[in-house]
Amino acid sequence: MTTRPRLKLGSHLVPGLVALALFVVLAAVFLTASFENAQGFGGAPITASIGYAMFDLAGGEVPSDGFLIAFEIIDLVLIAALAAAVMLARRESDGKLVGVESIRTDGGRSADSAADYAGSADDADADADTDTGVSSKEGAISADEKVGEAN
């Protein structure tokens, strides 16, 4: 079904005023600042110089800082993001999805879901669910099974 785009126009007075005030301040600063003419890059090879700058090599014709450390740090951050995305999206071993009744930690959960959550904890420690009361026994059993599988 295709529909025409419709605007959602409610009363957003305060957020609108906040954003507008920020824009007015920024615009006043930018328009009163004085800049000389843009220097540009001349005819220097920009993409090749980006490559030299990113790996902290000498040879780039355009001046720049070196970014090797930042490159490595961002490499680690991307790996962490990959691991986090996989952790959020993976299926549990019994076919359940993460979060269906298992991560919900308010008082409304059942004993089975508490046991599932304890079993899926990474440390798989029996005292991880000492605060779950009725389900601690089941939680400990499933945690022990998890340890057995992991070994």
Binding site: T3, P5, R6, L7, K8, L9
Partner: peptide, 15 residues
């Protein structure tokens, strides 16, 4: 402006 003001999230992603 369309991204933040449009009602349907699909239209917002196209914009």
């Amino acid at each position: 402006f369309g991204v933040v003001l449009v009602e349907d999230v699909w239209h917002a992603s196209l914009l």
